[in-house]
Design a protein around this nucleic acid. Structure first.
Lengths: 191, 191
DNA sequence: CTAATTCTGTACCGATCGGTAAGGATTCGA
DNA sequence: TCGAATCCTTACCGATCGGTACAGAATTAG
């Protein structure tokens, strides 16, 4: 998983993978079927282990807290000192050769599925009166996901956690301004 | 340039490139020296041709208009119907094999250089009183660049221009809220 | 202690990678 | 019209790609 994370789908050779796994090539093929299947399993594991914060975020009581948790936890996730910086879903392959286009498409649709889930959560907030009726859950979810993706790209470039956190707070201000979200009682961290 | 843009540095084979250029492999090597040199020239050409809007944006009279132009033109640039969707600087390679790490590093530092230029422009706005003294040019520039990068990733996933435009307006609201920027006279486009 | 079985590791498959050497066609100056 | 210099193309280089055949080692069953 970390090899794919660090080097992308195409940049990770089967030799790199087997070396990191401590097994031989035939064992990899016996256990996983092939490089692409292994990648899909790695992405699934990544989603469960390294993006578990999304579940916690969605469970927050208010839309503001959902988004705040998402943005702040994302910053932490993409800058863990013991893991590759960035996000597997981005690093994995935003662009690749035509023969591996399905991999890029798979990652893209995974990300958009997450965006859809966030939009659903925000729509619920509108229905509950937590967000005003004029708020656009789909557009807001898109904005939030765009910020998380940008942060992943930035993190991969080596930008520090604290620097990304500042940007997350600005994004949160944008979410509040554009959504009219009710703010939680304790003050937020202004930049 | 477009082959690199669409397939990334590693995903674009020399065969793909020569085919698109209508020349033979030895001609490519005679003219450019190698794949990596060709890529760097492609990036330079891209910066000049497809990111020229940045110069126009920096020339805007107010910080708000600088950022608004940057965000809105970026949306247009990453969703041109006759070009690959996304941004060469991102697609080119956010992650790649260890042997091509210099390419990814080169792209990352190019992007951060753009961020630095924007920070300088915003610092000027603070000095001129266009932005309040408490505004943080570096953090604001980082936020704007993060949004443009996220939009490039989103565009590469096939999200439409109009959808990205909505997100840009939300980001702009965030910039205004966090910077305390004076708004231009004509009303902005609320989401 | 032997026989059947799993399992690991070596060695190899054709294809493609980035990059190049050498020959054939073409164009140019004289 | 001839010789020379410049292309352009074909063919190939070693290395590596993803993927596999096969033999020897370890394990288990009887």
């Amino acid at each position: 998983m970390e090899v794919f994370w660090r080097q992308g789908y195409e940049g990770a050779s089967v030799n790199d993978l087997t070396e990191a796994m401590g097994i031989n090539k035939p064992s990899l093929y016996a256990a996983y079927g092939g490089k692409e299947e292994l990648f899909r399993k790695a992405v699934a594991r990544y989603a469960e282990r390294d993006m578990g914060y999304a579940r916690d975020a969605f469970a927050q009581p208010s839309a503001y807290e959902v988004v705040a948790t998402l943005l702040r936890e994302n910053v932490i996730a993409v800058t863990r000192p013991d893991k590759p910086h960035g996000c597997l879903s981005i690093q994995g392959g935003v662009a690749c050769s035509t023969e591996n286009a399905p991999v890029a498409g798979f990652l893209a649709s995974s990300r958009l599925a997450g965006e859809g889930a966030l939009a659903d959560r925000l729509a619920r907030a509108v229905a509950e009166g937590d967000l005003p009726a004029h708020a656009d859950p789909i557009a807001l979810a898109r904005f939030v996901m765009i910020v998380t993706e940008g942060q992943a790209v930035h993190a991969a470039a080596g930008v520090s956690r604290e620097d990304l956190r500042q940007a997350a707070e600005i994004a949160l201000a944008g979410f509040s301004a554009a959504s009219g979200a009710r703010l939680p009682e304790r003050a937020t961290d202004p930049v």
